[in-house]
């Protein structure tokens, strides 16, 4: 039986209109994402990653080409496609608990409370239910935003540098957590990142983008068994392959960021 949630992007072009001339941000993007896949998008700043994500979420209109979900053209945002924005966008006047519950139809019901609690635990924010966003660190806010995006069980979760504000150790912990969530919820994830290691640890495929205009330069599959060994030989090889796309080479893979 075929599973639902196949995302197909065909010949996608996106222009932004500036004063006189059009700025071509995305140029002929073609990508198919199978249900349950974990995809990372990696590319230099300003190459159009966020723009691509916003198009897939349905927040951005006016493009050429097709974005299809199970063969249907997208029609605006939907609960089926959750998003974690680059800036966490928690509502400052709602407690963390209420923020996390935003995606639920009836956040006050007993069942919702339980779900909210579970998701807070999932991202390690137990005990911060009654706190407000301004009382949280940047990393905690990002984790709260992840919990908020997951709470209504979307088919596809789009993450825009969700771990950008975390320290290296918390980040590694979150890699484990994200992987666990991804497996448990059986959800498609598309994550933008600047961290090559992160991309390799988590993804089935890495999409490397180049800029001006943003195009897909290469799609690198990561056929490694999970959980992945960061110190392994194959890991290093794939890292070499990704970094080569950026004219960077490494004898020894520590953390490289693009």
């Amino acid at each position: 039986m075929e599973r639902l949630g196949t995302l197909e992007v065909k010949n996608l072009n996106k222009k932004y209109r500036s004063q006189n001339d059009d700025l071509l941000v995305l140029d002929d993007i073609n990508l198919t994402v199978q249900p349950g896949e974990f995809i990372s998008i990696i590319g230099s700043s300003g190459c159009g990653k966020t723009t691509f994500l916003r198009l897939v979420v349905g927040l951005e209109k006016g493009y050429e080409g097709e974005i299809l979900l199970d063969g249907q053209r997208l029609n605006g945002p939907s609960l089926k496609r959750g998003v974690v924005f680059q800036d966490h966008r928690l509502l400052p006047w709602l407690s963390i608990e209420k923020n996390v519950g935003m995606g639920l139809k009836n956040p006050k019901s007993g069942e919702s409370r339980k779900t909210i609690q579970e998701h807070l635990e999932l991202v390690g924010l137990k005990g911060f239910e009654k706190h407000y966003p301004h009382q949280l660190s940047g990393g905690m806010s990002q984790r709260a935003a992840i919990a908020r995006a997951l709470v209504n069980r979307p088919e596809i979760l789009l993450l825009d540098e969700p771990l950008g504000a975390l320290d290296a150790l918390t980040r590694m912990y979150m890699h484990q957590e994200l992987e666990r969530i991804w497996m448990k919820e059986d959800i498609t994830m598309i994550m933008i990142t600047h961290d090559v290691d992160e991309a390799i640890v988590l993804s089935d495929k890495i999409v490397v983008m180049s800029s001006r205009p943003g195009t897909i330069k290469k799609i690198i599959p990561v056929p490694l068994a999970r959980p992945r060994d960061r110190a392994g030989y194959d890991f290093a090889n794939i890292k070499e392959e990704v970094l080569a796309e950026f004219q960077l080479h490494t004898d020894h893979p520590f953390t490289y960021s693009i």
Partner: peptide, 8 residues
């Protein structure tokens, strides 16, 4: 407003 649009 975008956040709540996504939540329909």
């Amino acid at each position: 407003l975008e956040v709540v649009r996504v939540f329909e």
